[in-house]
Design a binder for these strands. Structure first.
Length: 492
RNA sequence: CGGGGUGUAGCGUAGCCCGGUAUCGCGCCUGCUUUGGGAGCAGGAGGUCGUCAGUUCGAAUCUGGCCACCCCGACCA
């Protein structure tokens, strides 16, 4: 069939693109490297947003919004941050167009309308936010300041990929200010826990919590925490980051507060974010050759009901029965869609909803009406069962939970199977080529070694796991002593 | 930005080497028959062949410029 998705074994990236496009999640837009998120994809993103937003509020945060444009002078204030993003900034230089006198009907940039100071389209909002915080913070009584922003940002990447690395992407960025280093560190770790919790309980995606090495650290951060996930093809994906910013931004933007003793001190900061990249993680974690698989908790539609009938009267009988069933399911907070379109046949609908990843499908035919049953199919295992009509609501409610946990269990099992301990560089290279996945190996702690390994094998240190088991060993590359294993992988 | 590749109907493509007005499949429209896993038959609509220029009696096809996209590097959430 033309809609069949390319086999994963043949070409994972084609497989990924096919699912994104065919499951109706997103398209490339006319704008270089940007994407159009289609209604089905956006509905999933909205579910993610709602869940995350609640978790942020439960941990004491509030939402606010800051400008898209950052004057260059503000942007460059925190030098390391500015340097880190300098190569990928879109810059606004003019504010007006005019008709081209030499070419009627066409427009040119009006050279008269050049901005005195260029505006940077935010690649991240630390600069504009810290410049604003400066006016909001005077005393310890103003702290902690716990704010999150839902926004879009632009990073002019050389190479783009739908959901994983688009020129413009949607995300949330939390920016907090604290009176003490300890509080800020606790905040950074708390939000990492929130992300890990979200990844595991909503995305059904196991992650490793860890610290980035200096090479991989966020520009302007003292410490970058991250969650790392493993995709089905064995490549790692950074799924979220939480940064301890120290006093770097407070110093750059002169944000001071008077403590209880009346002494002035710079505040301590964090920032943390997850993006529409999580959509990519979702697709590459659970999908199969029939299309997308959405964990029930994130599925905009959890159950689809497909009627099977031969005549108009048949459909009417089924519809009457379905409307009662639909209400019973909705009473259990299950989102249901009844697809009674006459324009498509049942087989077509089955395939379509599998492609779109709807967790549960109920088919009701005249045969079922006679026997008081329905056929229930689950997307994750592609199995079907016949269930008594009066037990459907509790059955489906249980089934959704089962699917959610089965997806997680499967992903966890895969992650465990794809995680190897390796002790020599030869084994390291062999494992990368044969199995991929996470490799736990000793490292001497130097950026030079990390860089060499990256050059020679394309594998990077994904993170140094938190609460890492101490273990004496020698660096696989340099042979120098090491006290713990770190996580290596080839990554997206 | 460096290396490789591709642009032909809404989507996927054949044709290009060897120049003569575009092939096939899916989708779309109409009708009938169908409907428990992507229906069958019949009829129909839809294309300035990415773009600009050149060569030629004639260009999807040859030549050059430009643009876009994909893959591999560098960069990255």
């Amino acid at each position: 069939m033309s809609k069949a998705i390319t086999s994963q074994e043949q070409d994972y990236s084609k497989w990924y693109n096919d699912i994104v496009v065919q499951a109706d999640l997103a398209d490339h837009s006319a704008v270089r490297g940007c994407m159009v998120i289609k209604p089905h994809g956006y509905a999933i993103w909205e579910k993610m947003q709602a869940a995350l937003d609640k978790m942020f509020k439960d941990t004491g945060h509030v939402n606010a919004y800051f400008p898209l444009f950052i004057p260059k002078s503000l942007f460059e204030a925190e030098e390391k941050n500015a340097e880190g993003f300098a190569k990928e900034c879109a810059v606004v230089t003019h504010y007006r167009l005019k008709t081209d006198p030499a070419n009627p009907g066409k427009l040119i940039v009006d050279p008269e309308a050049k901005l005195e100071e260029e505006l940077i389209v935010r690649p991240t909002s630390e600069a504009i936010i810290w410049n604003t915080y400066k006016g909001w913070i005077q005393s310890y009584r103003d702290l902690p300041l716990l704010i999150n922003q839902w926004a879009n940002v632009v990073r002019w990447e050389m190479r783009t990929r739908l959901f994983l690395r688009t020129a413009e992407f949607l995300w949330q960025e939390g920016h907090t200010a604290h009176a003490t280093e300890k509080e800020a560190l606790e905040e950074a770790e708390r939000m990492l826990d929130v992300y890990a919790d979200f990844a595991e309980n909503w995305l059904a995606m196991p992650v490793i919590k860890g610290l980035k090495t200096a090479n991989e650290r966020f520009a302007g951060a003292e410490e970058t925490y991250c969650i790392e996930a493993l995709m089905q093809d064995g490549k790692a994906l950074q799924a979220g980051t939480s940064h301890f910013l120290g006093q770097n931004f407070a110093k750059a933007f002169d944000v001071k507060f008077a403590n209880k003793e009346g002494k002035l001190d710079h505040v301590w900061a964090t920032s943390w974010g997850v993006s529409t990249r999580l959509m990519g993680a979702l697709i590459m974690s659970h999908s199969d050759n029939k299309g997308l698989v959405i964990p029930p908790k994130l599925a905009p539609t959890q159950v689809v009901i497909v009627p099977i009938y031969k005549s108009e009267e048949g459909l009417q009988k089924i519809s009457a029965c379905v409307s009662e069933l639909k209400r019973k399911l909705q009473d259990k907070n299950i989102s249901v869609k009844f697809d009674d379109r006459d324009s498509q046949r049942p087989g077509w609908k089955f395939a379509e909803y599998e492609l779109k990843g709807i967790p549960v499908r109920i088919a009701i035919g005249e045969r079922d009406l006679a026997e008081g049953t329905v056929e229930i199919a689950r997307r994750d295992l592609l199995t079907k069962e016949v269930v008594k009509m009066d037990a459907v609501d509790t059955y489906v409610s249980d089934l959704l939970d089962k699917i959610q946990s089965n997806l997680y269990d499967k992903a966890l099992e895969r992650k465990n199977k794809m995680t190897q301990k390796v002790d020599t560089y030869a084994d390291f290279k062999k494992t990368l080529d044969e199995k991929t996945g996470f490799i736990l190996a000793h490292w001497d702690g130097t950026p030079e070694t990390e860089e060499k390994i990256k050059e020679e094998t394309k594998a990077t240190i994904r993170c140094i796991p938190l609460n890492n088991e101490k273990e004496n060993g020698v660096c696989i590359y340099s042979g120098k002593p090491s006290t713990q294993r770190v996580v290596f992988a080839r990554a997206y």
